[in-house]
Design a protein around this nucleic acid. Structure first.
Length: 573
RNA sequence: GCGCUUGUAGCUCAGUUGGAUAGAGCGCUGGAUUCCGGUUCCAGAGGCCGGGGGUUCGAAUCCUCUCAAGCGCGCCA
């Protein structure tokens, strides 16, 4: 439709004056139905070039457009509105074609065709690929609520890209060799030793307001969660006391890592998330890649040695200070493997590389990009999605969390309390860069106050109508005369449904899943209005069939939208 | 102190690329109901879009200054 109108306007404009080079004709969907179905602002934007007021330009445009009649199957009428907008009203034939499109599309409605690389002919018709890296929590403990937002965002963005025609891979990046894992291992070992010898000495760690008693060998910055205790018990059950003498035993680390990873994956599974690959940071060491990068940085005069450490000249890129790449202990900081990892991703040939991480990581991202660029790679395919932190609210008060005492609500706890569907929806209903307030009381409530239930209810209600129709022996004619749909609420609903593909495409391009959630609410509202104003079963066979098809189309859009968000569309509630 | 993010209705938040009278849900007030699911629908009240200045046909949106909040600024990740 937009292309058609663009061509028409282009043709008329060229007769009216000199259109500036590169002038693009743009359209928008007006918020106010009195302004038609599509609006165009060319008249205002050309006022200066034409040295004329916008309104006369618009009026001339309308006159010229109507002189060579516009396709009546597409456009019903054109008017000048406000300061000089061209307002177009779609013809009902066009709307009906769109409705048929929804029904024909069915489970596929809203999907874009396969996206192909077009920039390089050599690549021919290769499908675009995307790598979405998310979660990426090191296996040191259960996933928290914060990880939940990351996980759900990443997974949904992956869904969106896949609906936009990308071949998508989900990847989990982790490090099981660093300091964190050492502390984890020592924490488990200390708990284990206390089981072997209950008389082992204790000590107190923590600050003045948070004192915690732990076994003597426990690291000062150790992990205090209950799960450490459980892992130690399991090791004790399996190995008895024979590991007590072996200070270097790898068992603590490998056992803990294996168990924690299994739990993380089980948690992700509950959310319907399945990774395609896991990338161990260790790979980058083993291949020698990170050392090559350091050498290259030194050749480029972007790295130097000082105080026994190797530094990255981030001041070259406008930062206040340089950054350590390799500590004086010989161990790299996370920044070096991060650069290596992104080089690795680029070398794997993805068209699009998406990272999802929390606001606390934002400052390190430019270093990675600058590093990648300095090494001669093109970072333009890398896109970062940043999300702000989550606050749980219960009874109007924020839920206090303390990592120190390991008093935090895990993602599993949250799902136990409010269900998987609600968890996903609440993480997706707000834009990623707002601080999310997760209202537990609202989330628990299974009523119209809870936006997820409102959507699911609308879907269930349509299913109920279909069941009812079956009971009374009514079968909708698949070739029903859809032009019988002319009630305001029917027309409004048809128009909303047809926006779905654009919403998906827009949400995908902007990596903003919340647009889908916002849109689905509109669909549910429009459907409910239609439902309350128009009866289906009991009307004449023709009208009942047409309305039934409209209800089925609504069901398709609700269902597909919920599917993209990873939320179930129940037949009954 | 510097950097990033965010300030929109009482609360939680939408607002596309700069567009027409700034929207939704909750809460509040008042109404509807012979119904295919009342987990519903309709109406109303409620706004200095944090504040000042600028850009232009036109600003919640862009620029600038300023105020406030969150996060980051480590040989942690």
């Amino acid at each position: 439709m937009q292309e058609y109108l663009r061509d028409q306007i282009q043709r008329v404009l060229s007769q009216m004056g000199d259109v500036p080079d590169g002038f693009a004709i743009e359209f928008q969907v007006p918020g106010n139905p009195d302004h038609g179905d599509l609006a165009c602002n060319v008249a205002m934007r050309l006022a200066k070039a034409f040295r004329k007021a916008p309104r006369p330009i618009a009026e001339e445009l309308v006159e010229k457009l109507s002189a060579v009649p516009l396709d009546e199957g597409k456009i019903q009428r054109v008017e000048v509105g406000g300061p000089g907008f061209l307002n177009f009203w779609f013809a009902s034939d066009y709307l009906i074609e769109g409705l048929k499109g929804v029904l024909d599309g069915a489970d596929e409605y809203g999907k874009s065709p396969v996206a192909r690389e077009e920039d390089s002919p050599a690549k021919g018709s290769r499908q675009k690929t995307a790598l979405v890296e998310f979660v990426s929590a090191n296996p040191t403990g259960p996933l928290t609520v914060g990880h939940g937002r990351n996980a759900v965002l990443g997974d949904t963005i992956a869904n969106l890209l896949s609906w936009s025609g990308y071949d998508v891979s989900r990847e989990y990046y982790f490090n099981d060799a660093g300091r964190q894992m050492r502390v984890l291992s020592e924490s488990v070992r200390a708990r284990y030793l206390a089981k072997v010898d209950p008389n082992i000495g204790t000590k107190t760690i923590g600050s003045d307001d948070e004192k915690i008693v732990v076994p003597e060998p426990f690291p000062d910055d150790g992990y205090l969660g209950e799960y450490i205790e459980e892992i130690a018990s399991e090791i004790f059950t399996k190995h008895g006391s024979k590991l007590a003498q072996d200070a270097d035993s790898e068992v603590f680390k490998t056992f803990a890592e294996k168990k924690i990873f299994a739990e993380i994956n089980a948690t992700l599974e509950r959310l319907g998330i399945r990774m395609d690959s896991y990338f161990n940071e260790k790979t980058l060491y083993d291949s020698g890649q990170i050392w090559k990068i350091v050498d290259r940085f030194k050749e480029l005069d972007l790295a130097y040695e000082k105080d026994g450490a190797t530094w990255f000249k981030t001041t070259e890129f406008g930062k206040d200070s340089d950054t350590v790449l390799i500590k004086s202990s010989g161990e790299p900081t996370y920044r070096l493997p991060d650069i290596g990892y992104h080089v690795n991703k680029i070398e794997r040939g993805f068209s699009l590389i998406i990272d999802v991480f929390g606001a606390d990581h934002i400052a390190t991202f430019p270093d990675v990009i600058n590093g990648v660029k300095s090494l001669g790679y093109d970072p333009s395919g890398i896109d970062v999605v940043i999300y702000q932190f989550v606050t749980l609210v219960r009874g109007g008060e924020p839920v206090k969390m303390s990592t120190r005492k390991a008093q935090y609500v895990t993602l599993d706890d949250l799902m136990d309390e409010v269900s998987e569907d609600v968890t996903r929806f609440f993480f997706l209903m707000r834009s990623a860069n707002t601080h999310l307030e997760f209202d537990m009381d609202l989330a628990r409530e299974a009523s119209e106050k809870n936006p997820v239930f409102y959507l699911q209810y609308a879907h269930a209600r349509i299913c109920s109508i279909l069941r009812k129709a079956e009971e009374v022996g009514f079968v909708a004619d698949k070739n029903a005369e859809l032009s019988l749909l002319e009630h305001d609420s029917e027309i409004a609903l048809i128009k909303v449904l047809q926006r779905f593909p654009d919403v998906i495409a827009g949400a995908s391009a902007a990596r903003e899943p919340h647009r889908v959630a916002t849109f689905l609410r509109e669909v549910a509202v429009q459907f409910t209005q239609f439902y309350s104003q128009c009866r289906i079963i009991g009307e004449s066979a023709d009208l009942a069939s047409a309305r039934m098809l409209l209800a089925i189309a609504s069901k398709i859009v609700l269902r597909n939208g919920l599917t993209v968000l990873g939320i179930s569309a129940p037949d009954r509630m």
